[in-house]
Design a binder for these strands. Sequence first.
RNA 1: GGGCAAGUAGCCAAGUGGCCAACGGCAACAGACUGUAAAUCUGUCCUCUUCGGAGUUCGGUGGUUCGAAUCCAUCCUUGCCCA
Length: 431
Amino acid sequence: MQKDISMHLLDELSWRGMIHDIMPGTREQLDREMTTGYIGFDPTADSLHIGSLVPILLLVHFQRAGHKPIALVGGATGMVGDPSGKNEERNLLTEEVLLRNAAGVKAQLERFLNFDASLANAAELVNNYDWFKTISFIDFLRDTGKHITVNYMMAKDSVKKRIEGETGISYTEFAYQLMQGYDFYWLYQHKQCKLQMGGSDQWGNMTTGTELIRRKCGGEAFVFTNPLITKTDGGKFGKTEAGNIWLDPTKTTPYQFYQFWLNASDEDAKKWISIFTFLPKSEIDDLLQLHQQEPSARVLQKKLAEEVTRFIHGQEELEKAIATTEKLFFNQQAPAESLSEQDLASMEGVVHIRFTRADLEQGTDVVSFLAQSGILPSKGEARKLIQGGGISINRKKVDSLDMTIDPSLLLHNKYLLVQKGKKNYYLAEVS
RNA sequence: GGGCAAGUAGCCAAGUGGCCAACGGCAACAGACUGUAAAUCUGUCCUCUUCGGAGUUCGGUGGUUCGAAUCCAUCCUUGCCCA
């Protein structure tokens, strides 16, 4: 991507709706020189989830605009816990878990940025554990703590909320912003890093960093934040009944990942298409117009799902996800028998259940089958859902609790297609 | 260390001796309607169940009582005030 013909990074991010707050002087800094900028990622799990997608995309945009991105894994800060957005003290993760998580997160980040060392703006990965592990408490208090007043720290929203709230805040979490501030300072000193990006909830932590840089060495550094992703209906972004949407294909299959985006509401899709894809403005405008004319065609959702799935999982996995989606949803009225053995066997990403033929020979009732196969957690649960009309087998609604499952129901003598609700498919396979 | 207040299901929050598996709201799941949307309406929502019930809950423990989320004692946790 050529720097001079593309839009200014900030204008680009701005029309995409990826900028919430920006510190004055940031634009001038970006114009002045190739700037090094960083974003921190918390190793709270061994995989990133789609909540981290916006920061990842910011770094990618940043690098494409010719600047140098640094992804920081918070191996040290993760041990302390960020109070932002939390109304309760966190549980501390053990060192062992954190090390493993940091490694997992690092491996994922490496896939999205260009680390080619021959580039002037090659991406870098750092772990703040590397510099924090050797700093003594006394040194930290004398060299860093001395520069920031408690008054300043208490004025931060994240801290103020906790102080005024019911649960209070421990010294540990109170000190978090100093650690994050120190990260910025360290990167400023060692990597000439002059910019920090992050979610809008991080504004307070981020500005502690610029303040520290100013007071400790008279340097000038900048920050900007992206708005937090919300859903129009007020729900939490990135959650489904199955839990988080992870970037790790073994935790969330590409099919499930694709489905998540495809199921975006109209309103959300309009916002998300520009944030989560790299499509140019003209193309997005066209899509928005198409969407306006015929929302039921869901062009926005399809394009969104396609682009994001490709970015995370690659073309091949995307095609499999689309193929499975078409088989399951393209013609829902078609009887399950019309699906070929090949169709069923190649459904990657739907939940597979295995059971032995012997289990079926004498026939079992649906309720036991659903509970024993693990599709539902208990018989009671199975019973309730069936009574509520929420279970289909081979696309036929189960309308009786007495229904018997036996080999005659098997598709191609091998499969059972079980649906919980409209969208959750399970493929049970005899082995 | 002293004083005051609080701890109820995933979250918020009613409930002050039996009618309590515990009002209500949110979230979640399912159904109807649709476009695999949104909104709306309906059902479910501690666990298991042979659908008759059974078991375990209201910070912990012990007690009073025929009977406790509710009363008493004690301990723990949290917040506020004082030292």
